[in-house]
């Protein structure tokens, strides 16, 4: 897959980092403001997709990246499952219970387990959107002309 023109490349260089940071902001403020894991994850995946579309990438690197993102996706969802099941080991021993201290409402570190869920759901969504995107590109590249 080929890259795009110099103008697009330069703009993407300037923007992609900011988009990535904004995604992280949305994820870690998920329990305080609208947004959260899913929205932030999509934004992070968007920054990677911008880079790939603007700069292009060759086939072998794409398949390697897809392997990596699949791995991240599986790890993230395993951790989310573990966090949900951890309620059965600690606290009141109930599935999905929020057993960490709640803190005061409105602070960044509060609401117990929710920020942790948000972070790993965000990772999961970012990795899976990237995987879908890469898989579709790989399909297209494999196709005989």
């Amino acid at each position: 897959m080929k890259g795009m023109t110099v103008i697009v490349k330069k703009t993407t260089q300037l923007i992609a980092g900011l988009v990535f940071l904004y995604g992280i902001y949305v994820i870690i403020h998920g329990h305080l403001t609208p947004g959260g894991g899913f929205a932030g994850g999509i934004i992070i995946a968007g920054s990677f997709i911008l880079l790939i579309l603007a700069f292009g990438s060759d086939f072998i690197r794409l398949t390697k990246e897809e392997t990596g993102s699949t791995m991240y996706e599986n790890l993230a969802i395993l951790i989310v499952t573990f966090l949900a099941a951890s309620g059965m080991l600690f606290g009141a021993r109930i599935f999905f219970i929020n057993w960490l201290p709640k803190g005061t409402a409105g602070e960044l570190i509060s609401a117990g387990m929710l920020p942790l869920y948000n972070i790993f759901v965000g990772l999961e969504v970012a990795a899976s959107i990237l995987t879908i995107f890469l898989a579709l590109i790989i399909f297209k590249e494999e196709m005989p002309e």
């Binding site: 599986n74 969802i77 395993l78 499952t81 573990f82 099941a85 599935f95």
Partner: peptide
């Protein structure tokens, strides 16, 4: 809840 947790976690363990 194990009816859901165990196969779900197992699926992703198999993938890794």
């Amino acid at each position: 809840p194990l009816f859901v947790i165990v196969p779900l976690a197992g699926a992703f363990l198999i993938m890794i």
